[in-house]
Design a protein around this nucleic acid. Structure first.
Lengths: 177, 177
DNA sequence: AAGTTCACGTAGCAGTCGCTACATATCAGG
DNA sequence: CCTGATATGTAGCGACTGCTACGTGAACTT
């Protein structure tokens, strides 16, 4: 029972039940240990959360790499459509729910949240740059532009305004019609 | 001591200390009452939160109306610049921090969160529609497009990727250069 | 004047929180 | 064989959680 064998189990519990309300005893049960042992390994609940966020960021990076198709999209709209489909996949939804908790924690400057969120966004940006269509006039700037649009769409979707975002993407020429 | 006189004080406390970790006794102290009385008035903590979210949505609507300048912007980029400046104002930052908690709650389907978030986004959309430049070819779609971009920028700013979003807006022609 | 409802204080319930003290059990190195 | 570090279980601490039981003045109704 090392830290590294604990982190995947803790991640699974947090994906299912959330990060903000997580407490040591349920976390320990999910990981097959006791709260006593979690403190033994991580020292503090806060340190556990920080370690866990770092691990989740690495898992997210690996998931993005795995989802990276080798063929490039033909247009920016195709890039947007591809990544939105990826985010809408049922397998991604527990992660999406967790993501907004991470954003909320980052906005409140809780330890570890900012770094984890920045790591994941930097990873997404790199992925997007690699996905930009060949011959795009401004791949760097375009990737940043698409990331902004994509995250706005994700947020509006989370609060039930997904259709509004879709209409916006259409009006902006960012969805294949 | 009625509900309506309590809600502004509760809102102030929640803006300062967050919504997720709020518990009855600190809330009561901030409102000058006891936890006993909060339960007396609202019945349940959950009902209190739902009422509070509804009230906060109304406060947000009023704040938007008050911030609505009478003169229209000349370009879409000016609309974006104006509302981003509004969101970056120091007075708005406690609300922004709260906003991400609301989004996280909506993503987890906590009672009241979705409705409050939808109300606020609908209000913002209406405001944007009224702000679109005269002669804009597609005010409805354009407003939805700008809202998506603006919310994406807000999220990236919250996690410390504000500069990335700025570069994206520039590349998308959505910031006055 | 009697009865009813409202508004509020005090005290406390059962449960959970993060964390600790203490006792072991296991196992490698001298 | 002894010793020290690593690992784990049991019990519990004090603080806090949402919430309730109970009592009491004040106001309003009939």
């Amino acid at each position: 029972m090392t830290k590294d064998s604990l982190l995947p189990l803790l991640t699974a519990h947090v994906l299912a039940h959330g990060l903000g309300g997580a407490s040591l005893r349920p976390l320990a049960k999910a990981a097959g240990t006791s709260d006593r042992m979690l403190i033994y390994h991580f020292g503090t609940k806060e340190a556990l959360i920080v370690d866990l966020l770092g691990y989740i960021a690495k898992v997210y990076a690996a998931a993005l790499d795995a989802a990276m198709g080798s063929e490039r999209a033909a247009t920016r709209a195709d890039v947007v459509a591809r990544i939105l489909a990826h985010g809408d996949a049922p397998a991604m939804q527990p992660f999406m729910r967790l993501w907004w908790e991470i954003v909320a924690g980052a906005a409140r400057d809780l330890p570890g949240y900012q770094i984890a969120a920045q790591t994941m966004m930097a990873e997404l940006l790199g992925w997007l740059e690699g996905q930009m269509p060949a011959g795009d006039p401004d791949p760097q700037g375009g990737a940043r532009y698409l990331m902004t649009v994509i995250e706005g769409t994700a947020m509006l979707t989370a609060v039930g305004h997904g259709d509004t975002a879709q209409q916006g993407l259409l009006a902006g020429g960012l969805l294949p019609s």
